[in-house]
Design a protein around this nucleic acid. Sequence first.
DNA 1: ATCTGTGCAAATAGTTTGCATCCTC
DNA 2: GAGGATGCAAACTATTTGCACAGAT
Lengths: 130, 130
Amino acid sequence: MGALRDAGFRSGGARRRVVELLGSEGCALSALEIDRRLDEVGRASVYRVLEQLEELGLVRRLDIEGIAGYERAEPGGEHHHHMVCARCGKVIPFEDERLERAIGAISRGSSFDVSEHEVVLRGTCSRCAS
Amino acid sequence: MGALRDAGFRSGGARRRVVELLGSEGCALSALEIDRRLDEVGRASVYRVLEQLEELGLVRRLDIEGIAGYERAEPGGEHHHHMVCARCGKVIPFEDERLERAIGAISRGSSFDVSEHEVVLRGTCSRCAS
DNA sequence: ATCTGTGCAAATAGTTTGCATCCTC
DNA sequence: GAGGATGCAAACTATTTGCACAGAT
């Protein structure tokens, strides 16, 4: 990712590996899971890199059930939200245009300047329900 | 709260105090803040009571920015969501019927059985923006 | 008298920070 | 060669658990 170099970052191994992993993953990973998958990378580096990437707007940080999840940000500002199964913990991404419009309307109608939003639906996934 | 006695709970001091505090508070408090405000109550009791109350559906648990918040559940299933100022940390509750309808539609149109949902808007509050 | 509720302290999980070293530029 | 990047370990914060004791029924 040239965006990193453009932002004045040097290219070390830890950051490259974290970026590659998140790039290959469609949905959110926790910091500890990233650390677990990248043996050569120290845990502190994982957190530091994630923080930098979030500030640059290259990754989105989510708070699903108390632990932070990180996923790559799509270029066009496109994004999805998450359904979390209370039984098995599975996280399922979804998109919904109507939901986005409703949030846009809230943003426009309020004196609070909304820059990001996050929606989590909790319940039971189809597999656990059957 | 008679609902607690009905559920087979004895009436000890810790639970009563937590219930009273949450009852008097309109919006979410963190477990540590509840502990801080209730000197006579042990921290473990605060967490235990909150867990029980959540299971009984008497309080709602939220994950705003990595730490859990707890607020009393309204009888009619009415609820609000939250805007969080990234600058000063202020949490502002809001309600929006259109947003609720959009989520209801998602729930109906999906094989995932949605029982709860949570929406967090992040940005800048009017005071910090000016 | 029994058995739940409570408090304390220790254990755990997630995250951040300090510091010496490594390596890119 | 200088300064950012990294890894390790220790510090911190939020939460959970174990256990002995108090207190409600």
